[in-house]
């Protein structure tokens, strides 16, 4: 681009003075935001309920709204997974983004075409999975964490049939240990086939040259995080369509 700029006789340096250009902007935005916040704070009071009472549990008990995505995941996974493992993977997954994304294009400007897959993945993780689960948890969950429409009366006695069964049971396995082994195989197969499918998909859309440049470590990290991310919609699908409670049941962990 430097050559193009020189050809068009544009200055190579597009810098302007911070004072007044940037400082002025910051001042105006800060002023506007502070006024808007003050007006909002004058009109809408922060909630204060009755004094804390450890003996009276409200139904539903909801976490602060920004954690409702995690609470919504508890419907589909056990707390150790939805509350500890997946949040940790979200944070780690976010942190490694700059290291697994080796696309030199799209740095410093908005462009969808140059980095389609990166943006679509972020969109799936952030907008679809994170924001939508927060919206469901905030507006669509009532007593007993049952689904209610926002305009529906919150009936604490709503009857919901408990029809969920474990996947091995659904497949016809009744013995405890055989079921555990089948469950383990299904989970292992999910990851093996998931990572293999991811490999062939990258090979098809990006080519072998890219895979070599990308390297084994980057590929594995991306594949594992990506397959973990897809496990949420996969489990949601199994639950909502086939009433699957767990895939793997053992005395120690259930998935």
């Amino acid at each position: 681009m430097a050559e193009a700029a020189r050809a068009r006789k544009l200055p190579l340096d597009d810098k302007i003075h911070t004072w007044p250009h940037l400082v002025r902007m910051e001042f105006l935005v800060a002023l506007f935001a502070t006024v808007a916040l003050t007006l909002w704070a004058m009109m809408v009071d922060a909630p204060l309920e009755e004094p804390a009472n450890p003996t009276r549990t409200p139904n539903p008990s909801k976490a602060p709204w920004y954690f409702l995505g995690l609470q919504e995941m508890l419907v589909y996974f056990d707390p150790w997974h939805a509350g500890v493992v997946l949040p940790t993977l979200i944070i780690v997954g976010l942190m490694i983004i700059p290291y697994i994304d080796i696309n030199p294009k799209g740095s410093g400007y908005y462009c969808f075409k140059d980095r389609k897959y990166e943006i679509l993945t972020f969109f799936l993780g952030f907008h679809i999975l994170w924001i939508v689960t927060i919206i469901i948890g905030t507006f669509f969950r009532g007593p007993g964490w049952n689904l209610f429409w926002p305009w529906q009366h919150w009936d604490p006695h709503k009857v919901v049939a408990l029809t969920n069964v474990d996947l091995p049971y659904l497949l016809g396995f009744r013995d405890y240990w055989v079921s555990a082994i089948v469950g383990l195989l299904v989970v292992a197969a999910y990851f093996v086939f998931g990572i293999a499918a991811f490999y062939f998909w990258v090979l098809r859309v990006k080519g072998r040259e890219f895979l070599e440049r990308w390297g084994m470590v980057r590929f594995t990290l991306t594949a594992v995080i990506f397959i973990f991310m897809l496990s949420l919609p996969a489990k949601m699908f199994l639950r909502l369509v086939f009433n699957v409670k767990y895939i793997l049941v053992t005395p120690w962990i259930n998935i």
Binding site: A52, N53, S61, P64, F67, Q71, W80, G83, V84
Partner: peptide, 24 residues
């Protein structure tokens, strides 16, 4: 604020820590 909203939201939010593998 130490009201009902506060302790129950924090209880629900912190219950995850109880389920930490090995440590909860």
């Amino acid at each position: 604020p130490w009201d009902q909203l506060a302790i129950w939201a924090v209880t629900v939010g912190s219950n995850m820590a109880r389920a930490t593998p090995l440590l909860g």
